[in-house]
Structure formats: structure tokens, C-alpha cells
């Protein structure tokens, strides 16, 4: 297959950046999107041009490193897959593909397609945990957790922290990310003691990082590669309101 690529190139955080167009030929349909970029980079190196920088690691859709707006959509055209799990058979022969970094104020571009997502770590630091020291845990089966509760918690815990929800949101809100963690821990009996404090601290940190507010467009859910549901946001809102009412 042959493609025309419009790729965002930006030398560093201070550079203004621009699109550069490349032609790429003879790509097998079974090539993954990032492997296609590998091939482009090999061609650039052969010509003495600097390769395109992008974040990636596991290439199995689980580490959350890869990002990219592909033709204006986080993680490309397919639902429920990350960029690294997107294959070139999802594109048309001769298609022009526009590739950009996540665009959101709290995610500063570091180079080309790489952005700084450390704000998400700082939100977790604010309260996305259960306070238990190593060695002080009780016997695991001393707490029975109904299967549906464990399953719902797991659904929320499947978040990979890639930031697609933020990138998809017109307000650059991190509500789905925060809500996933609040649900994952808040649904479990172990997470109950700190539930109120957790939701309040995480929301405060989200605001401090410059993420926008949620206006219920559900773009986050539509673009989440792990299918995290917006019902988690509803749960977060309930917890947040009750935490503030009864604090």
C-alpha cells in the first residue's frame, strides 16, 4: 500500500512546529501503524534526516505509552484499540494520513509527536491509592467481594493512562481518567475508608494541572481504547457531591 503522510514536526518545546509531508510506498497491509512509522524513520535516516520522535513501548496496547491523533482522532480510526494495535489495513490505498501529537494544554509537546503527560501521575499522587504499607495486609480471602462488584472495579481499573480521553475532549478534561480510578478503588471495600478524601484531592489536583471541566459530550468514552464508560463519571460526581455535603 502507498500513503501520503502529513506529520507534525517540532524540534522541542520552544519550537513552533509545522506539518511535513512524506510519501511512503510498498507497505504491507499487515504492518502496524507504528511499524509503518519505523519504516518511514529508516528511510529518513538513510537520507540523513532526523527520524520522527514518538512515544511507544509495549506495542501490545497495554502500557499506554503510544498516543497520536490520526486524521483528527486519538488512536486512529478503529474503536477500542490503541495506535500500536492499529494496522495499515484500516486505511485506504493512497490515503493521506495526518499525524499529530495529543493537543491539550496540560500536555506540553516535548518533541515531534511526544507530549508530557506527567500531570496524570500527579493526579494519582494526590489520592489514587489505598494507604496500606507492605506487610500489613490481612489474609486475602478475609474480605469477600461480590463478583459483579469485582468485575465493575476491574472494568474501571483497565484504564491505561494514555490520555486519549483528555485529547478527545474539547475542554481537555481528565474526568474519565480520574473517574476510572475513583470507581476502581471506591467500588472495593478496601478503598472505602479513603473514598471521600480521594475524590476531593484528585479533583483538586486535576483542576490545578489546568485540565478543563466535563460538559458531558462523551467524546472521551467514544475514543477510549479500553472502553472505560462515562457511567464512571456519574459515580465520581455522586461521590464528589456527597464528599462535599457531608465533610
Amino acid at each position: 500500500m502507498n500513503f501520503t503522510l502529513r506529520v507534525w514536526r517540532q524540534k522541542n518545546g520552544n519550537d513552533s512546529g509545522k506539518f511535513v509531508t512524506y510519501q511512503i510506498q510498498n507497505i504491507s497491509a499487515d504492518t502496524s501503524f507504528l511499524e509503518m512509522l519505523d519504516i518511514l524513520n529508516e528511510e529518513l535516516i538513510a537520507k540523513g534526516e532526523e527520524p520522527v520522535a514518538f512515544d511507544h513501548d509495549c506495542r501490545e496496547g497495554i502500557c499506554g505509552s503510544c498516543s497520536l491523533y490520526i486524521n483528527g482522532r486519538p488512536h486512529g480510526p478503529k474503536q477500542l484499540v490503541t495506535t500500536c494495535q492499529t494496522y495499515m489495513r484500516s486505511f485506504g490505498e493512497g490515503e493521506t494520513i495526518t499525524i499529530e501529537p495529543w493537543r491539550a494544554k496540560p500536555f506540553k509537546v516535548l518533541k515531534d509527536l511526544i507530549v508530557d503527560r506527567s500531570a496524570l501521575d500527579r493526579i494519582i499522587q494526590a489520592g489514587g491509592y489505598i494507604s496500606v504499607n507492605s506487610g500489613s495486609a490481612p489474609e486475602a480471602n478475609s474480605i469477600a467481594i461480590p463478583k459483579p462488584i469485582a468485575e465493575a472495579s476491574m472494568d474501571a481499573a483497565a484504564c491505561i493512562g494514555c490520555g486519549a480521553c483528555v485529547a478527545a475532549c474539547k475542554n481537555a478534561s481528565a474526568m474519565l481518567f480520574v473517574a476510572a480510578k475513583v470507581s476502581h478503588l471506591g467500588l472495593l471495600p478496601q478503598g472505602q475508608p479513603e473514598a471521600k478524601e480521594r475524590v476531593v484531592s484528585m479533583i483538586a489536583q486535576m483542576d490545578a494541572e489546568g485540565f478543563g471541566s466535563c460538559t458531558n459530550t462523551y467524546a472521551c468514552e467514544a475514543e477510549c481504547p479500553k472502553g472505560i464508560s462515562v457511567t464512571n463519571i456519574a459515580r465520581l460526581n455522586r461521590e464528589f457531591i456527597s464528599a462535599n455535603l457531608f465533610s
Binding site: V132, A150, A157, L185, L188, Q190, G191
Partner: peptide, 11 residues
């Protein structure tokens, strides 16, 4: 297993 359950791992 005890530690992981306590930290919220949804086994």
C-alpha cells in the same frame, strides 16, 4: 496476594 488485594488489585 494479601498485599495486592489490600492495594486494590481486582483479582
Amino acid at each position: 496476594i494479601d498485599q495486592s488485594v489490600a492495594t486494590g488489585v481486582p483479582f
